[in-house]
Simulated scan of single mutants.
Amino acid sequence: MPLTADVKAELLTVRDPRPAARVAELTTVLRFAGGLHSIAGRVAVEAELDSDRLARRIGRELVEIYGVRPELAHVQGGAGNPGSRVAVRVIDGGETLARQTGLLDQRRRPVRGLPNRLTTGSRADLAAVWRGAFLASGTLTEPGRSAALEIACPTGEAAMALVGAAHRIGIAAKAREVRGAPRVVVREGEGIRAMLTEMGARRAAQEWDQLRQRREVRAGVNRLVNFDDANLRRSAQAAVAACARVERALEILGDTVPEHLREAGELRLAHRDASLDELGHHADPPLTKDAVAGRIRRLLAMADKKAETDGVPGTESAVPGGVED
């Protein structure tokens, strides 16, 4: 997804100097891209990432913040993450790192969601949480009916923690399940733009918003064109139906039709595409559109009454199939 790649590339240039924000981003990446594993009876911290650049960043942060030098290895992605990926592993000192980041609680139990101190931190910490989650497992789709900023989550508890962090920033996000896998989604256009900006992808936010506005303008123009086309089709169908009924009325009534009604009917047939107002201007002397409409209405009613008396098809029978009266 080009948009997703662009956002991640920009986020990788964001480096918040505040220690708490760096810890929030790093811990969230580790939680959303992998988590804790048991290797040879020892607790290991592992994250599978979709780029060498992100893996190097995480490795550097682990060294600088916790003094831990991880292993980096290329692995084949699974069904949900096809293609080559880079695993960042900490085996020696993995349990200590898990405790320091909050991925293990004080009783050595894995944290199901996110450490509480991350989701109740400052606005910068909350933005770092979302930045880490997007770098680990986020996607952004193009503006439109199905536009979404979406994060694949390791657990339902992690999804709810991410939703809570978004709400504290003031952005509406929802947790949902897709084929049994928990996800967090921001769908509203302004919310997507705001979240991209909060995470630090300001250029991507501006470009996405401009694309959204262009599409909304284009959609509005298309709706107007379709509306005009629909009106034209309805007008054309109404004209065809009216002329067909008038022709049949004159045929039914023959010489018995009153002269002023005949003139109104012939006026309709002579100017098939004209509006009632335009027909009135063509009359001699000129008539109002209400007068023209009234005479045509009486002509059709008189013809339909005679047709019923004579047992013959009325004016409606002359309207072609598929044409609305």
Rank of each mutant, 00 (worst) to 15 (best):
A236P: 00
T96I: 09
G170E: 07
R168K: 13
G132A: 06
A283L: 03
D209P: 01
G220S: 14
R18G: 15
D6E: 13
G180Y: 00
A236T: 11
M1Q: 04
H282Y: 14
A318P: 04
A161Q: 01
E216K: 14
T309C: 01
A173L: 00
E150F: 00
G322E: 08
S137Y: 01
A148I: 11
H281R: 11
V163K: 06
H260N: 11
A303M: 10
L103M: 10
G254D: 14
D6S: 12
D284C: 10
E207F: 10
E48Y: 02
V29P: 03
R22D: 11
G311R: 00
P320F: 06
L250N: 00
E46H: 04
L49T: 04
G138S: 08
V86C: 03
Q100E: 15
Q210D: 15
S275F: 11
V184D: 02
A20K: 08
A79T: 06
L11F: 12
V323T: 11
G144N: 07
Y66I: 06
D284S: 15
A152V: 12
M160I: 01
R214P: 09
P110N: 12
R234P: 04
L279R: 02
E247M: 14
A166K: 00
G121Q: 08
G80V: 07
A158W: 02
L250A: 02
R69T: 15
R212G: 10
A24R: 05
P320D: 09
H167A: 15
R272T: 12
E207L: 15
R193Q: 15
A44I: 05
G321R: 08
A175D: 08
S38E: 13
A127Q: 04
